[in-house]
């Protein structure tokens, strides 16, 4: 399993692997918002958690179709399905690799970009924490969507339409957690809900992803 994880990370880092794509998209979204909204720092810092969360979510969405499509096209997925690894493990490892190469860089970049949105330094903690807890769910749910659409030619549109509604709860609770945390309000319930979504996705979705992948490989 570690071989698969290392391979996926290595592939993402090599030229054309798409490692920089999500990060660059995130950067562009966040840099453009102050131009669009205007330079009023009070307003910007107020909407910053939402902007960062929406930006991270869309950046994550952008990279989803790479999770399985490339392995499907060159036949690797067939070979992995007949390898000694259970397909559930393959799917989980691929989610993890996606999070390490997409989610984690977004989490780390968020405070830096937060500066552009006028966030105070004590707000960084809440932005990073909420993204850190929420982005694993984005990767796991996205892997499920990618598994559903893997055999389809140009399934990117369908993938986005399928996955976006599933992302909404994570977005609502994640952004709200960051907002309330920054405002100094109670975050216990939101934290439980966000963690609940993340852990439930990690625990359940790999089985669903493996099942649909098996159907799509026929």
């Amino acid at each position: 399993m570690s071989a698969l994880l290392l391979r996926d990370i290595r592939l993402a880092m090599r030229a054309g692997g798409g490692f920089g794509l999500s990060l660059a998209f995130f950067l562009i979204v966040v840099v453009l918002v102050p131009f669009g909204v205007g330079p009023e720092m009070g307003l910007l810092s107020k909407i910053a958690p939402g902007i960062l969360w929406v930006g991270a979510l869309l950046a994550c969405l952008l990279s989803l179709d790479r999770i399985f499509a490339l392995d499907f096209e060159d036949g690797t997925l067939d070979l992995l399905a007949t390898a000694p690894l259970p397909l559930e493990a393959v799917v989980s490892v691929k989610s993890l690799a996606h999070w390490i190469t997409t989610g984690l860089p977004l989490v780390l970049a968020a405070p830096v970009l937060g500066v552009l949105l006028g966030l105070q330094s004590d707000a960084f903690y809440w932005i990073v924490l909420s993204l850190l807890l929420g982005t694993p769910a984005l990767s796991v749910i996205g892997t499920f969507g990618a598994a559903l659409t893997v055999g389809l030619k140009r399934g990117g549109l369908l993938l986005s339409l399928l996955v976006l509604p599933l992302y909404v709860p994570t977005l609502i609770f994640g952004a709200e957690l960051a907002r309330r945390g920054i405002a100094g309000m109670d975050v216990g319930t939101l934290m439980s809900l966000l963690l609940g979504i993340t852990f439930a996705s990690i625990a359940l979705l790999p089985f669903a992803s493996a099942a649909v992948l098996k159907v799509n490989l026929r």
């Binding site: 392995d71 060159d74 036949g75 007949t82």
Partner: peptide, 16 residues
């Protein structure tokens, strides 16, 4: 877990 399959595609990663 005894069989291995090789089809029309070789499963080769072009950047590795």
């Amino acid at each position: 877990e005894m069989a291995v399959y090789a089809g029309h595609l070789d499963g080769i990663k072009s950047t590795l």
